[in-house]
């Protein structure tokens, strides 16, 4: 590739998920992040109990993200061919884990705030 711009990147992601799904996912990510910041500011503290659940959910998020990418690209774990592929898998897993943790923490804060 000669030049990699934000526009090219956006085009890549639109193609990857389909335009509608991609922007829906972006919207979901933005909303969840916004809600997360909202509950942090509202509660003015990080609840360790909720954080524990969030941590426990991370492996689930990691696996789900990797399986999702494999599914949309007709591939699987058998296709890991070299170190860079392991890095890519770990990268996708990390994103999935963090996303899931934020989601779980936020959901608990919103729906079970009295017990937290």
């Amino acid at each position: 590739m000669k030049e990699l711009t934000l526009q090219t990147l956006i085009a890549v992601f639109e193609e990857m998920f389909g335009r509608g799904l991609f922007w829906a996912l972006v919207a979901v990510a933005v909303v969840v992040t916004g809600l997360y910041l909202y509950v942090l500011i509202r509660d003015r503290a990080l609840s360790m109990r909720k954080f524990l659940w969030a941590q426990l959910s991370m492996p689930v998020g990691a696996v789900a993200a990797v399986v999702f990418v494999q599914k949309i690209t007709s591939s699987g774990f058998r296709d890991i061919g070299g170190p860079i592929d392991v890095v890519v898998v770990l990268g996708i897993a990390t994103l999935g884990a963090i996303g899931m943790a934020i989601l779980v923490y936020t959901a608990q804060s919103l729906f079970r705030s009295k017990h937290g």
Partner: peptide, 19 residues
């Protein structure tokens, strides 16, 4: 033979082509 190169062909190539 890499998975990342397959991802390029599967998902990035058409987008790059369109761009």
């Amino acid at each position: 033979e890499l998975w990342i190169s397959w991802l390029m062909k599967e998902v990035a190539l058409k987008a790059t082509y369109n761009a």
